[in-house]
Each structure stands twice: as structure tokens, then as C-alpha cells.
Simulated scan of single mutants.
Amino acid sequence: MLSVEVRDLWKVYKNKVEALKGVTFSVNSGEVFSLLGPNGAGKSTTIKVISCVLKPTKGTVKVLDHDVPGECNTVRSLIGIVPQEFQGFSDLTVEENVSYFASLYNRKVDVEDVLERLDLIKYKDKKFKELSGGYKRRVAIACALTGGSKVIFLDEPTVGLDPKSRRSLWEIIKGLRESGTTVILTTHYLDEAQTLSDRVAIIFDGKIVKTGTPEDIMREFKKESLEEAYLALMESLGEV
């Protein structure tokens, strides 16, 4: 079953800049799918269209079999978004932050259960501003999960974190997959994409130029890491 299906997606801004040029890919239910590419390639625009932040210029987008943008009210109730710049409410506690986001959804949410899943119980009375960067990211993910989200979008979830916090977040992402949640990830850390992703799509100049498992892409370019394979692909496209 597909969680996300994108076919011939175009996004052209009013200044006639073509941010997306016929993007096509699909995401299976319960997998971790990473969008990779250089800055300005179209990753953020793609995510914003799928998550109903931007309207597509043309093309077909379905999220959990609901049309975007035609059924965006429904889509928004089924997805969770964790932006890189998530700040939270500084003077509210962890529990108060998560409870606030839970109140935005029209369903009963067990906040304690969400906090337990993210290993936040012992921090529930701590103010958000007092947390480390890694635990702030945990709170962000917890807030996204309060809607019972079946699809989670994570934008550069571990940027700026120390190695221990980064690995801890990796385990949380693996746990989301094990629970059946579909995770769509953007990251510049190729080791992260290699470790976490069932499949990746590499976007360049508004087009998908490669899709596959990390292992398939490494094998194609005869490289021992996804990072080396990615750099080889970028070089072939004239980017490096």
C-alpha cells in the first residue's frame, strides 16, 4: 500500500521560476523514505506541496489516497510535520507543549503514552527552553505524533546535534517505522540516509534523477557508501 504518490508534479512560481519539473515518486506505507539533493534542488518545495503548505502548479499528489490540494483538510489531520526550525513554547513544560498540540486535533490523545514513546516522561515538567537540542527535537516529534499521524515529515531532524543525540534520534526514527508510521525525511547527512532509509530519491534541478535503496545506488556507482555514490552522481550531473 502507498502512503504517498506523486506523479508529474510541477511547481512554477509567479516569477516563472520552475522549482519542480515533473517530479514522480511513491512512498510505501511504513517505510523511511529520504529526499536527498543539494540546496535549491526542490526538496523543501516537494515536501511543502505534499503536506499542503503549497499548491502544485500541475500534477497528481495523493497522501493516504486523498488528493492534494483537493482534500487538504483531511490530509492535514493525518500527517505530522517536524520543521527544522521548530521552537516550541519556551516557558511551557514539555507536557504542556505536547498537550497544546494534542488539543488542536479532534481526537482523544494519550499524552503520557506519546511522552513515553519519546522517552520524555522524566522531562515532562521541565520547561522547553531548558532542554538540550536533542530533547527539543524529541518534543517536536512528540507534538507531531499527537494527531495519531500516519505519515511524519522530518526536515533535517538531526542538524546541529552532537553524535550521541543524533544516534538517539536515529533510534526514535527506527521506532516510528517499526510502529507502522511512514517517515519522509530530508537530510544532508548521507550516513544518516544510508542507515535509516528503506529507499531514497535524489532530486536535482527540480527533477528526480535517481530512486532506489541505498544499497542499489551504492552498487550502481560501485561505491562503499551512499555519500560516495551520491557525490559520483552529482559529479556526473556537473554539480561537483
Rank of each mutant, 00 (worst) to 15 (best):
34 S>K: 13
82 V>N: 11
74 T>D: 07
56 P>S: 03
75 V>Y: 00
47 I>S: 04
77 S>D: 08
91 D>Q: 00
76 R>E: 12
33 F>P: 01
43 K>V: 06
64 L>V: 11
32 V>I: 15
56 P>L: 00
71 E>N: 12
63 V>S: 04
64 L>E: 08
95 E>D: 14
48 K>L: 00
36 L>P: 11
95 E>V: 12
45 T>L: 05
79 I>S: 01
34 S>Y: 13
52 C>L: 12
37 G>I: 12
44 S>G: 14
45 T>K: 08
91 D>M: 12
62 K>A: 00
76 R>S: 07
54 L>E: 12
65 D>L: 08
89 F>E: 00
93 T>W: 00
54 L>K: 13
39 N>F: 03
73 N>P: 10
57 T>K: 04
77 S>F: 03
51 S>G: 09
80 G>K: 04
45 T>G: 01
41 A>S: 15
45 T>P: 04
48 K>D: 13
77 S>T: 03
45 T>E: 02
42 G>R: 05
43 K>Q: 14
39 N>G: 15
77 S>R: 12
77 S>A: 15
34 S>L: 10
59 G>V: 02
69 P>V: 02
61 V>W: 04
73 N>H: 15
64 L>G: 12
76 R>D: 12
71 E>A: 14
74 T>G: 01
57 T>P: 00
72 C>Y: 03
35 L>A: 11
74 T>S: 09
94 V>Q: 13
60 T>W: 01
64 L>C: 02
46 T>H: 00
84 Q>G: 02
69 P>G: 07
70 G>V: 10
63 V>Y: 09
58 K>S: 01
89 F>P: 04
36 L>E: 05
80 G>T: 13
84 Q>T: 07
43 K>L: 11
66 H>E: 10
58 K>H: 08
85 E>Y: 11
88 G>H: 01
38 P>C: 14
65 D>Y: 08
62 K>W: 06
79 I>P: 06
30 G>S: 13
78 L>G: 00
88 G>F: 06
49 V>H: 05
53 V>H: 03
32 V>D: 06
64 L>Q: 10
57 T>R: 03
68 V>A: 12
30 G>H: 09
62 K>H: 05
83 P>V: 08
52 C>N: 02
93 T>S: 06
82 V>R: 12
48 K>Q: 14
76 R>W: 14
62 K>R: 09
44 S>W: 11
31 E>S: 02
32 V>W: 05
90 S>N: 07
82 V>T: 14
40 G>E: 08
34 S>N: 08
72 C>G: 07
40 G>D: 07
94 V>N: 13
39 N>S: 11
39 N>D: 09
34 S>D: 07
74 T>A: 06
65 D>C: 07
42 G>E: 07
55 K>E: 14
91 D>E: 14
36 L>K: 06
33 F>I: 01
70 G>F: 04
65 D>A: 09
57 T>W: 06
42 G>V: 09
62 K>N: 05
30 G>T: 09
75 V>W: 02
70 G>W: 04
79 I>E: 05
30 G>E: 09
69 P>A: 08
35 L>W: 07
79 I>A: 08
40 G>K: 08
44 S>D: 15
40 G>M: 11
43 K>M: 03
72 C>W: 07
57 T>A: 02
34 S>A: 15
49 V>N: 01
30 G>A: 15
80 G>P: 14
84 Q>S: 02
59 G>C: 04
55 K>C: 10
80 G>I: 11
